[in-house]
């Protein structure tokens, strides 16, 4: 009987303690709401971008461009068209040739002066810089699902077309005179590295710039510049491409990129390329494949955005300063009220 009474007393005490805790918590409800709510709000605010741009700048020995959108026009000062002989190639003759320029066993040679090339969507061009400074523009087979090119080839002169398998060969001195070669389409910078690869990235960097959700304006687009949230470096042998997000087991779709190609100002072999995805492509990713590693998907997280948002950083700094000042004032008041009692 006394045991049962003791148990009842213990249970009442536990209930009383729980009631006291609940009452205390209710008094601190705004505090807890703030403690959980503010971080949740920050995570949600930075979980997605309003707009996103991937920007790549690289020095490379090779790149591949597939034209999309409007026709791409390139102006070349002087070039040599090595026109593919197709089924009339003479491999045996080609192996005995020791000259420079277009191998007569493989190509027909046509000298071009001041050429303007107009490339319709679907045309694929591979650019490659040789060790001696010569730059080759090789026309690859067109993308079958996208090609608007004439079957006879891209017209270069009245009598000559640029057909798949043919090359435009540009001497080093002429390459240095090339002005910017602008493009819009699918671009792949560098080449997957392995034995025999000679079109790889030398060095470069990338950035991801974004507009945040807080910059949404229902009456129109924000006029603010996007903020850089991620930066990174490209290393020798990297291969870079713009892709859309996709499930792991599905091939990634390409993303339209715009940019330009230019000769290196320091006259070193290779060329410079700058490419960026459009601000409206929220699902774009940059895929970087380095030698010996898996392909990396560059994709900012909410932490990247939160740590780079100047407004959040400023608010945090101001709030921290205000709390510090407030604490200081309270302490000073405590000290001054205490002094007369002492």
């Amino acid at each position: 009987m006394s045991g049962q009474v003791a148990k009842g007393v213990g249970a009442r005490q536990t209930l009383r303690r729980m009631k006291a805790l609940i009452q205390a918590a209710q008094g601190r409800l705004p505090f807890f709401l703030t403690l959980i709510g503010v971080p949740a709000l920050i995570v949600l605010s930075y979980s997605r971008p309003l707009g996103q741009v991937y920007l790549v700048e690289a020095r490379t020995l090779g790149a591949r461009v597939t034209v999309a959108g409007p026709d791409t026009v390139w102006k070349l000062p002087n070039a040599t068209l090595c026109s593919d002989l197709g089924s009339e190639k003479d491999i045996k003759r080609a192996t005995t040739w020791t000259g420079t320029g277009c191998n007569p066993g493989l190509f027909e040679t046509i000298e071009l002066t001041g050429t303007e090339i107009r490339m319709p969507p679907g045309v694929q061009i591979q650019l490659r810089a040789e060790a001696d400074g010569v730059v080759l523009l090789r026309r690859l087979p067109d993308r079958p699902d996208q090609s608007d090119a004439e079957p006879s080839g891209i017209r270069l002169t009245e009598n000559h077309n640029w057909t798949p398998g043919s090359l435009l060969r540009i001497e080093p001195a002429d390459w240095q005179r090339v002005t910017l070669l602008e493009f819009a389409g699918d671009v792949e910078i560098g080449q997957e590295t392995g034995s025999g690869a000679n079109a790889y990235v030398i060095e470069g960097r990338y950035e991801v710039r974004e507009h945040f959700l807080r910059q949404f304006r229902p009456w129109g687009s924000t006029g603010a510049e996007p903020t850089t949230v991620v930066t990174g470096s490209l290393y020798r042998g990297d291969r870079v491409a713009f892709r859309k997000q996709s499930a792991d087991n599905l091939p990634a779709e390409t993303v339209l990129a715009t940019g330009f190609i230019a000769p290196n100002l320091d006259l070193t072999p290779g060329f410079s390329i700058v490419a960026s995805s459009g601000l409206e492509h929220k699902q774009a990713q940059l895929r970087v494949k380095s030698f010996g590693t898996r392909e990396t998907q560059v994709k900012p997280t909410w932490i990247d955005r939160a740590l780079r948002d100047p407004m959040l950083l400023a608010l945090t700094a101001i709030l921290g300063f205000a709390v510090t000042v407030l604490t200081l004032v309270v302490e000073i008041k405590k000290i001054s009220f205490r002094a007369p009692d002492q």
Partner: peptide, 12 residues
């Protein structure tokens, strides 16, 4: 086998 690179061809 003959392999073509650019405008040149590798030895067989």
């Amino acid at each position: 086998l003959y392999r073509m690179r650019g405008t040149s061809i590798d030895p067989e």
